[in-house]
Design a protein around this nucleic acid. Structure first.
Length: 215
DNA sequence: AACATGATCAACT
DNA sequence: GTTGATCATGTTT
């Protein structure tokens, strides 16, 4: 698959992001995330997200109010917020709602579509990303599954903070859902505070989900 | 001390 | 195959 496959007129407008973050998280399912750099195009279809609210959510980084780290969350929606977790992994978020609110959507998993060889390289190229000993692809299933893996496959880090999702490097395209696809919601993964909120969204029975559904 | 994780390995079914 | 313990390790509180 190459660049000409994608229709960049399907890009999401800024209004998409300036809505309630839980609504944005749900509607991001099925959207195609693209990173375009010189001579390279990475693309994956989002299949799993989590919303982190602007208020009343003890698990959200915006809880303490604006700080250096969470500054992107308090900017206007439609940009990236990338932070490091556990000293090892990066997590990529899409900021939602108008400036000053403080909310974001964590991208937890996606289906690789384009630039799969480059994603392999970004991930480290070991058998852990399902490649055979001769470097041929065994499976693309786990390449972007899990927030740390997604960020690594797209080579995202803190330098991508505040990057707009309206180009020229990052794009989100809306191709809709397949007729038989259903979006389900459940508890978020890996948090202890506000753990019962049903703010995780995913395509039911998708092969690319990072973890099982937790009601 | 906690943290929006992921890879690995031991000990199971 | 699956599950649970353990570890790696930067940044914030």
């Amino acid at each position: 698959m190459n660049e000409s496959v994608f229709d960049f007129s399907k890009i999401l407008g800024i209004d998409f992001y300036l809505n309630d973050v839980a609504r944005v998280a749900r509607r991001l399912i099925g959207k195609i995330f693209i990173r375009k750099t010189a001579g390279q195009l990475l693309a994956a279809r989002i299949v799993e997200t989590e919303a982190y609210l602007s208020g009343g959510d003890l698990a959200s980084h915006s809880g303490p109010g604006p700080t250096i780290r969470n500054a992107p969350m308090f900017a206007n929606g439609g940009i990236l917020y990338v932070y490091m977790i556990y000293g090892i992994h990066y997590c990529a978020n899409i900021v939602a709602e108008p400036k000053g609110k403080g909310s974001a959507v964590l991208i937890r998993a996606a289906e690789p579509l384009s630039g799969i060889d480059e994603m392999m390289v970004n991930r480290g190229g070991s058998e852990r990303v399902d490649i055979n000993k001769d470097n041929s692809i065994k499976s693309k299933v786990k390449l972007c599954s899990g927030p740390g893996n997604f960020a690594k496959a797209f080579n995202l880090n803190k330098s991508n903070n505040f990057s707009p999702l309206s180009g020229p490097e990052f794009y989100l395209l809306d191709y809709g859902l397949m007729p038989d696809e259903r979006i389900i919601s459940g508890k978020r993964i890996g948090i202890k505070k506000s753990a019962d909120l049903k703010l995780r969204f995913m395509i039911e029975d998708s092969d690319y989900i990072s973890r099982p559904h937790i009601i």
